[in-house]
């Protein structure tokens, strides 16, 4: 009896040993094939955040539709998992691996060091490594433009800004916007509020709506939201109370047609798409990409939804300012360089 039990047990060990060997074999085989396997790792907000991550998701989806190549997507739930996920993808031969958001910088640094032959693309973050392509945006430039437009459209002399989470990145939007407003009309007042102090502040439309309401009651008649999913509440309240709103990240002009003045677009989806395409064509290189107005990485959206609201004078003025920023005649201060805003 004892013996039978024993042999059964060792049989189990043998079986599981075989299984491990088989798995290892499958793994090596899949690495050896070296097919093109792009991947994306979203940050902790998840891919359906109606904002930043979702833009990347749309970029990845567009790549899948255009090429028929599957992009493996992962959504880690905590800091340790981000690094684990990146390393695991690299180990299994996925590349390029697009990492979304400034919060992933540490994890990408660790993973790119552990897998120096794997290509990583980090959007909005900062890592110095020969196998990491960093993509950054000059949100302050785009925000400056919509600030000019806000100032031109305000009748009360007061405009509003609703930020998401209180972090330097969002302050960069705010500071650029304030500079744009002041550039157009230095007597204008800007009311600014942050929605909260945790990442949940990017997904709180009702709080966004409340903040917008109080800003409108204090006189604001154009409100710019840089708040991810919270913006939905901002646009809704602005539409309900008949004032103008400005969208962010994606072109959100379609969301409340008639009261959406414009959107400050930040094309993160394109960054993911470009990275995949470049890697596929063998032209991917780790040089840092800083995308501002000149590179059309950020900008202001003009489409059929807001065409009627933008007069020829406004369009000319904004494009003139845009050209001045590109040429360097106007220098927009970046909040994150010294954590302060001149205005």
């Amino acid at each position: 009896m004892k013996n039978a039990k024993h042999s059964h047990f060792s049989g189990l060990i043998k079986k599981s040993g075989l299984a491990i060997i088989a798995t290892a074999f499958v793994l090596t085989a899949s690495i050896a094939q070296a097919e093109f396997k792009p991947a994306v790792v979203y940050d902790i907000a998840g891919k359906n955040d109606k904002s930043f991550n979702e833009s990347v998701f749309n970029g990845a989806t567009r790549f899948m539709n255009d090429t028929g190549i599957a992009v493996t997507e992962l959504e880690p739930t905590n800091a340790a998992q981000v690094e684990q996920t990146l390393k695991k993808l690299a180990q299994r031969g996925y590349e390029p691996i697009v990492a979304v958001g400034f919060g992933m910088s540490n994890a990408v640094a660790a993973a790119s060091e552990a897998y120096p032959d794997t290509k990583f693309t980090l959007i909005d973050g900062w890592v110095m490594a020969p196998n990491v392509q960093v993509v950054l945006y000059k949100e302050h430039e785009g925000s400056f433009l919509v600030g000019v437009l806000a100032a031109m459209n305000s009748k009360t002399g007061t405009v509003g800004f609703v930020g998401g989470m209180d972090i330097p990145l969002i302050s960069r939007f705010e500071c650029g916007y304030k500079q744009g407003v002041a550039y157009q009309d230095s007597s204008m007042k800007v009311l600014a509020n942050m929605t909260g102090s945790t990442p949940a502040a990017f997904g709180n439309p009702s709080k966004g709506g409340e903040l917008t309401r109080s800003q409108i009651e204090a006189g604001a008649d154009v409100v710019y939201a840089a708040a991810g999913g919270t913006g939905i509440g901002v646009y809704q309240t602005a539409a309900d109370m008949g004032v103008l709103a400005i969208g962010v990240d994606d072109n959100q002009n379609y969301m409340q047609p008639g009261t959406m003045l414009t959107s400050m677009f930040k094309l993160v989806g394109d960054a993911a798409y470009d990275s995949y395409e470049a890697a596929m064509n063998g032209t991917w290189d780790p040089a840092m990409r800083v995308l501002g107005l000149a590179e059309n990485g950020v900008g202001w959206a003009l489409d059929e939804y807001n065409r009627d609201m933008i007069s020829a004078e406004m369009e000319a003025r904004v494009n003139e300012v845009r050209a001045s920023i590109i040429s360097g005649d106007i220098v927009v201060h970046d909040y994150t360089t010294d954590n302060s805003c001149p205005i």
Binding site: F102, G103, S105, N106, D124, G125, W126, M165, D166, I167, P168, L169, S197, T198, T336, T337, D338, N339
Partner: peptide
């Protein structure tokens, strides 16, 4: 959040 954003964070560090 207050401490990490305003007190303990190094200048130039985004996160």
């Amino acid at each position: 959040v207050y401490l990490l954003v305003h007190v303990l964070r190094e200048v130039g560090q985004m996160s």
